[in-house]
Design a protein around this nucleic acid. Structure first.
Lengths: 336, 336
DNA sequence: CTAACAATGGAGAACGTTCTACACAATCCC
DNA sequence: GGGATTGTGTAGAACGTTCTCCATTGTTAG
């Protein structure tokens, strides 16, 4: 009352019990009578007591989970967040997000900061650090990595099945009658392995082979400009493809622009498909066929795995989320 | 060495000094000789010491700033974040983001959680809570509110000059020769005052009046569907407008769709302008004229004000950021 | 030469929790 | 009826910092 903060000691005084007892009630620990329970709960309500997280951190948990975001512009990042918070909404855990930036160095700074703040666990979204660095973090605190294939020794992982996603697109296009299907991927510069675009490209190759078709992969970049340049090159060929599968929606938008400029109508002259199902893909003016990653499920799964880890599981788990194909207006049968 | 964490005591032992001295060096406090400085710094490096944030929080600061996000899908939210982190990148402060959700209740839970974690200061982005709640939070910790006009008693504020943004659009359209310019705004349901769309609509009205033109405001919602419905109604009129100014880009996309469906070409038959300058507005396939809020500057300003507050300023400050008009392909002279 | 003072380093008490021991009472089993 | 067991509450030592004194120097002024 007098000073700012109301502490566990104030509650104990009010209820006429020890601080240890109050602590037990607050934590829902074993060894409290019903009477004690009500007495303390009442005192807490009357005084408006809230546990001081920092003090807790010094001994026990902080009930804080950190989510490191590599790229805040990542289109399905809000979905993942919603999945995480949705899953954790009715628990005592609080979620805080850390903007890690796209550099390994800044990401390391962020994870360090989270560990310094003794968070109970970390979810890392598409981290670009080396496997060694990841392993080091995972020994310091429970970790779930989202969006990186392979390498899950000391931590759990949630990945989208990019291999299957690519197959869905190819199967769809082949089903429509296409045979000349090109793929635009991202040019790899980083050393990190198992990144989504690599797996998507591989999935595309396998699926084409399975249909007895020749693959045709062009590496530019996952930007609107990258898609545009790639498509312009592909469309200038004599036996130009009748369908282009861009490894990311943003690149698919560039492909659409290239088609516009080449005077090709979509989907009659050219079918276009993307990946990620970003928000604008559903806008009627774009209506892009794409692969949906269901960030919501990914986030919820990551949250579940992390809580399991915190609560004791030691065996590491990798969860694969199945993507779905969203067919819209940019794909159709090829003109004969 | 033996157990996990290396503490200030370990450093003190290694350097052969007291813990108090190490603390002084770490904090850069007054009363350390050059010799002490180097000795301790060396020991810190050798042991890889990192201050434990929770322990710090118990006595002093946490060097943590919280940013509460109302809507993680807000298109310029990444810009604001970048502005904040960019400004704070070389300081000792760390930024953590809290997804507050769009409900007053969930936002309150988030801010409480941030206060419980004794963050040194809070930036609230478009909070929907009442002025009273905001004031209560501001007494507990330094606060900067972003995106709400008016009412800045106990806290600082950063707002975009939405009034001027609307004027920029109207002036541009009038300059092209338009006289029948309609505005689509968001239908107000919340009680919170000074929200951006209200101010934009008012700015539109004032600007039209200043040109001696009749205003024409239609309230739907800031969604693609809302823009579509609004535009369909406007375009069905006998004296249909030659230009539509949507209060948000997402609605402007709906307007574009309505124009497509009505067989009107943009900008020849209809000029369209939005607000926010979201990423896709710049895609060549959309090329939407829009008002840019410069989230980067907003974020950087908010960060600066917050740090000033934390370091002692008590007088409250409101900073207004000037928007700029980005003219693209969806606006042009009306067909005569 | 001494009193006053500035500069530096250290002791030790907080800060608000958690949690291990332990005390005490009531119940149970033979 | 006595030892073992179970249930409930408390003392008090951590946890890793910060920060207010206080002690010890060395320097300066008169």
């Amino acid at each position: 009352m007098t000073s700012g903060r109301v502490t566990i000691a104030d509650v104990a005084r009010r209820a006429g019990v020890s601080t240890a007892a109050v602590s037990k009630v607050v934590r829902g620990a074993y060894g409290v009578s019903a009477e004690m329970q009500t007495k303390v709960t009442q005192a807490i309500d009357e005084l408006g007591y809230r546990p001081h997280a920092a003090a807790r951190a010094l001994r026990g948990r902080t009930y804080t989970l950190g989510v490191m975001l590599s790229d805040t512009r990542n289109p399905f990042f809000p979905d993942i967040i919603e999945g995480v918070t949705g899953r954790l909404g009715d628990t005592e855990y609080q979620v805080l997000l850390g903007p890690g930036g796209i550099e390994p160095k800044t990401q390391a700074r962020m994870t360090d900061a989270m560990i310094d703040r003794s968070m109970d666990g970390l979810i890392l979204i598409s981290p670009v650090m080396t496997d060694a660095e990841l392993a080091a973090i995972a020994t310091a605190t429970p970790v779930v990595v989202v969006g990186r294939h392979g390498g899950a020794a000391a931590y759990d992982a949630v990945v989208d099945d990019d291999m299957m996603g690519a197959k869905l697109v190819v199967d769809h296009l082949v089903g429509l009658g296409h045979t000349r299907i090109a793929h635009i991927t991202h040019l790899e510069r980083a050393r990190a392995q198992g990144l989504p675009h690599t797996v998507r490209a591989e999935g595309y190759r396998q699926a084409m082979r399975a249909h007895g078709l020749a693959d045709d992969v062009l590496a530019t970049s996952f930007t609107e400009e990258g898609g545009f340049e790639g498509a312009r090159e592909l469309l200038a060929r004599d036996d130009r493809p009748t369908a282009i599968f861009a490894g990311a929606d943003i690149a698919a938008l560039g492909v659409l622009r290239a088609a516009d400029e080449a005077g090709l109508s979509v989907p009659e002259d050219l079918s276009v498909a993307g990946y990620d199902n970003i928000g604008i893909a559903s806008l009627k003016r774009i209506s892009l066929t794409s692969v949906d990653q269901d960030g919501h499920v990914i986030g919820a799964t990551a949250a579940r795995l992390l809580v399991e880890r915190i609560e004791g599981r030691s065996r590491s788990v990798t969860s694969s989320v199945s993507p779905t194909l969203i067919v819209r207006g940019t794909t159709g049968p090829p003109r004969l």
